[in-house]
Design a protein around this nucleic acid. Sequence first.
RNA 1: GGUUUCGUAGCUCAAUUGGAUAGAGCACCUGACUACGGAUCAGGAGGUUUGGGGUUCGAAUCCCUACGAGACCA
Length: 592
Amino acid sequence: MTIEAILKEDIQKAIQTNFEIAADEILLQPTKKEFEGFYTFVTFTLTKTTRRSPVEIGQIIGNYLNENSRIVESFNVVQGFLNINLKDTTWLDLFGEIISDGSFGTFPSNGQSVMVEFSSPNTNKPLHLGHLRNNFLGDSLSKILKASGFDVVKTCLVNDRGIHICKSMLAYRELGGGETPESSGIKGDHLAGKYYVKFDVEYKKQIAELVAQGMSDEDAAKKAPWILEAQRLLLLWEKGDAETVALWQKMNNWVYQGFSVTYNKIGVNFDKTYYESNTYLLGKDIIEEGLKQNVFFKKEDNSVWIDLTEEGLDEKLVLRGDGTSVYITQDLGTTELKNSDFHNDRYLWVVGNEQDYHFKVLFGILKRLGRPYADGCFHISYGMVDLPSGKMKSREGTVVDADDLVDQMVKTAESRTQELGKIDDFASDEARKLYNQLALGALKYFLLKVDPKKRMLFNPEESIDFQGHTGPFIQYTYARIRSIARKAEQAGIAAVVPPATYQMHQAERELVFALAQYPTKVMAAANEFAPSIVSLYAFELAKVYNQFYAEVSIFSDPNPEAVQFRIALSSVVSETIRKALGLLGIEVPERM
RNA sequence: GGUUUCGUAGCUCAAUUGGAUAGAGCACCUGACUACGGAUCAGGAGGUUUGGGGUUCGAAUCCCUACGAGACCA
């Protein structure tokens, strides 16, 4: 039973015995910094039922706790707020539990499994900053869910076919001159992206020519030779034309090689990858099934629809009149496939909030179809990463490329580290590893600290910080503690929890309090699908430790109990930082 | 046109889901022991939470309205 649970129970008893009313669930909040205490109970909620003043209620409950609770040391009442202090023995017992719990913050299996689909790139362009937010969120969420007790399957659905892929194929066929990643020295995904851009340039030129000849913009966009040819390529591909398929395979393989370099660099991987080229025909049988069940209906042009107005949505097309699929058709099929492959209890999609409506429709249809897994489907909707100029647009060249950004971060980490000159004795591969850890620590933290639902801003003019509320700040705290641990080991000082007679320092109490929050934060992050909760916690813990570090002396305290205790505290803090950052996909360095 | 999300310090973000005098970081000022690592710590300044109404013991949070920004559906 946690301290908080005991305290809530004691408050409940206080209310029952003093006011003779049944108390609902007790809500506690951490006491604000400017007041004395650790936990605060708000008494306003009881004024009506008890017909007493907020202060009076606080006094009565406080007095009861003082006399009857075995964990409460003292209290004070400010207006309607009852602030509570705990006994040192309570803190010490709590810390004793934490330090002896090898799996602190990791929950036992809950017997449920969850699939997290994320990343889901297009094979016509390299990954950019927006993909990074997606990847980091998906990866971190997977780790958080695992820590909270789920079995996790990470999947990726690659968008490897369609008209956009044919565009880059066409441009390459016409303008590529047999160029390859090897011959050009260009990474495969960037090479494909280059031809996607070239297509667009040529296409625009053709439109302009047609417009100059008197055609309307709209018609010109439909009649330009290259768009017609791209459409023809798509049909050829669908028929399995050998030459087209070969070109498609060749270019896609380049892209996959490029992607794998990037995924490797950012430390992201998947248990299973689905390819749209294998799944794009799925879903049509589900449309048939839905028609029979009268979930769907046909219009005169033979197109199939669903009426979701009862759910507050519109009528929605699920199959075109000519029998071809729309996105939702494929998604229905792919979801069915995932379920028959893995039989998970939950399915998550990490996809940008521009598709909020799409997923509402998808889940609405799954419910109407009576799919048992429909209630376990969640859209992890995240906000776009904006630039100061607005949205990233590949056609306007304002896209922040993932590879470039990571490389630039590594360089910044390198120069910053060398300025400080603390690792001059490192071997070069050791140093390179450190630069990568710091670069990714800064980048991942930057993207994960913000509530996923909110859109956020990235300014390419300002490099991502290494000081203040950043990944490296937390990594630094870890490295510094490790330095202390090495010194303690050398001096033969053990980590020991002091006896009940020990007089605690306020900074020590605050540290134990901060540590005790960790499991709650992990659970909250899992429930709310929000790695930002873990991010903010890790920062808070590091900050509390740094205050402790500045305030008390660890090695030169005359009391050996204090020294041993502080070594123990430090070591648990470093472990908790390591775990918390681990949930964000961020590694910690021993030195930096 | 319909639907929807958002607007918090100069900038980037918090605010325990309706609770205290709205908090951090960056940037800007002032300080820090011969200290165990200064990528740190302590302090200062910075706010009519876009404007206006309402609900109540209490609103950044809920409702209405105006303005502004984004997204989606054709």
